[in-house]
Amino acid sequence: MNKIVKYILIGVLVLGALWAAVFFIKSNSKSAITYDTSQPFISSIEKKTVATGKVVPEEEIEIKPQISGIIEKIYLEEGAKVKAGDLIALIKVVPNEQALFQARGRVNNAKVALGNAELDFNRNKTLFDKGVVSAQDFQNIQLIYDQAKLELENAQNDYQIILRGSAGGSSTANTNIRATVDGTILEIPVEEGDQVIQSNNFNDGTTIASIADLGKMIFEGKVDEGEVGKLQVGTPLKISLGAVEDVELDAKLKFIAPKGVEETGAVQFKIEGDVEEKDDVFIRAGYSANASIVLEKKDSILVIPEAVLQFDKETDKPYVEVAVGSAEEQKFERRDIETGISDGVNVEVISGLTKDDKVKHWNKTEPIKKGEEETETE
């Protein structure tokens, strides 16, 4: 009887162990992952970079006064189209008292000198007519008299310029601020009543207005030092404007700065490109813009998706896994390859693969089963 019980207990233990083993295997086993594959294909790749910047006029002219004073009248507004010579503003002269006093004194001195010269001239003319004074002496006296008249005229003109800003109120008076070129007024940074300073050797002077031709626009941007070496003058650009959606302008690179400027730890080089405008698009000065630049382009080359690449942990060289045998066998072997340019989606294959190879999409994961998902959630 004891032997029978003993055998029964042993049998129960064996069955329990078998059941536990089966349960453990079933609960921890996962189905094999079936990897997708794709074949290399022939395509074209463009390696691009984007330069951020803005669209500005090719030339912007600042109009500055030739005399100091106060803005008496502004005749035009920002955005107005002007021709060279159009009147923009009028300056009221506030004369310097010391300079005005000196100019008035010079006029008085010139009048006294002219009076003396005139008396001398008239006296010697009478003697010359009688033959008492030689022609040479009379010519010298007449020259002094003529010079005295010119000196008075010059002194009076200087006095009027200091007092009113103009000697005769002509269209070229210093008080009249006129456009020097054809274009559009971009900005008038002064208002009526503002005091302005003339342009001289020690001061740039106050800007009355800035004028530019909006028909000649350029793109100004910056590129990183790692890409500037691949740029060439004449390279086509595609300009997209931040303020105008779904519009792309053509441009051509015309300038690459010979010297870079360090910004936030990176060296940036300034570039410029002539923008070809469209009749149906009005471009305002200062629009933010991005320029797409093709750094390198290759046509009809063998490529693979960049996502299938793997990199050796020690050498950091690229490789892929290529299917060997049938698709059902899911057997793969490592294949070292040499790559070329990439556009971020596809990469050029220089060597190591053919069009007939089937490359493993290695990063596929097995879907989580419903029961396992509920367990993880708990």
Rank of each mutant, 00 (worst) to 15 (best):
G85T: 07
D316C: 03
Q139E: 15
E97C: 03
A251M: 13
E59G: 08
K364S: 15
K216S: 10
I91K: 01
I161L: 15
V12D: 04
R334K: 14
A289F: 02
L249I: 06
L241Q: 01
N200Q: 06
T207D: 04
P236C: 09
E328Q: 13
K364W: 04
D274H: 11
E227C: 04
K48P: 00
G11P: 11
L152S: 05
Q195N: 11
K297M: 05
S171I: 11
G229V: 07
G205M: 11
S199L: 09
I33M: 08
K83Q: 12
V281W: 08
L76E: 08
K125N: 09
I293Q: 08
K238F: 05
G169H: 14
N346C: 08
K370E: 13
I70A: 03
G234S: 13
V55P: 04
G11K: 09
E59W: 10
F24S: 10
K278F: 04
V94S: 03
P318Q: 06
F269N: 05
K64C: 07
A212M: 06
L241G: 02
F41S: 12
K6C: 11
K259Q: 08
M1V: 15
L100H: 04
P305H: 03
E118T: 11
I74K: 12
K3D: 09
I63C: 09
E220D: 08
F23N: 10
D204H: 06
E46F: 05
K355Q: 09
E151D: 14
K355H: 00
L119C: 02
T206G: 03
V324Y: 00
I71N: 07
F121H: 11
T49W: 00
V12F: 13
V22Q: 05
F23T: 12
E348G: 06
Y159R: 09
D146Y: 12
N109C: 00
L152G: 04
I33H: 04
Q142H: 02
I10A: 12
I350P: 03
T126H: 07
K125M: 13
S351V: 05
V14K: 12
V228R: 07
A17S: 14
N363P: 00
V56H: 06
V349E: 03
W19Q: 08
K270G: 05
I25M: 09
A113N: 14
I368F: 09
P189L: 15
G183S: 14
T52F: 08
G165A: 04
R123S: 04
